[in-house]
Amino acid sequence: MKKYMKNLLVEEVSFPHQRYVLVKLTDQQPLPDILPGQFVQVKVEGATNTFLRRPISVNYVDRNNNQLWLLIQTVGEGTRTLAKLKAGDYLNILFPLGNGFTIPHTTADILLVGGGVGVAPLLYFGERLHNNGNKPVFLLGARTNNDLLQIPMFQQFGEVLVTTEDGSLGEKGFVTNHSVLGKRTFSHIACCGPKPMMMSVARYAMANNIHCEVSLENMMACGIGACLCCVEKTVKGNVCVCKEGPVFDIRQLTWEL
């Protein structure tokens, strides 16, 4: 897929949570094809101590409004600076980067598991699956009720199940403790979130012989496969997460499950 560097117009900035900012970007031209699971490299202007671009997954592409949504967790100086964006600003991005999730056949029973900011790419993927005629089930985990993001959006595209660590919404515990995993059979799982969560989901998928893809977040510099910094060990050796991923079939990885 052709990659672009563009200055996109910030159309809307909102704060769904104290640690998250949702930035909606648009362009005069129609946005190019973007696959669920792909990411963008954002240039951060005005932060004194940051230097490199920030990789951010595509949260959603709103084709009706020609908008690209980025849901950004404010973890460091770079992302906190991005949270200061205002409507009318421009954001320079490289996109679309990496490979998306595999789109399964329309009869697949697919579970999308997300934790923390890892829920972001699952929204766009969920819409794609919904449009394809799948009935995706979302299993979203968070610390508390307040930390769950975009739930009404997810509900447009499929059934939403929730776990919270304090039990304030849904089942108490982690996503891998959710009762749905014992009750229903899935043919596919797609997962994005903290690595321990992805590992335990991968373990469940392996044990139950379910096709499972995870989206990795290794630190990267270039984002286009040139610098070889973001490598992950795979059965084919070290490969760039930015170019060969960020989505990997767990059977390609060398995680000790």
Partner: peptide, 30 residues
């Protein structure tokens, strides 16, 4: 990219750290 006589896997991850006005890398000639 740096080329060697034989294949090299390079160093383990993490290979990069952002520092003030720069970055450190230890790719290791993969």
């Amino acid at each position: 990219k740096g080329t060697t006589l034989h294949h090299r896997e390079g160093n383990d991850y993490p290979r990069m750290a952002e520092t003030p006005s720069g970055m450190l890398n230890c790719v290791g000639l993969q």
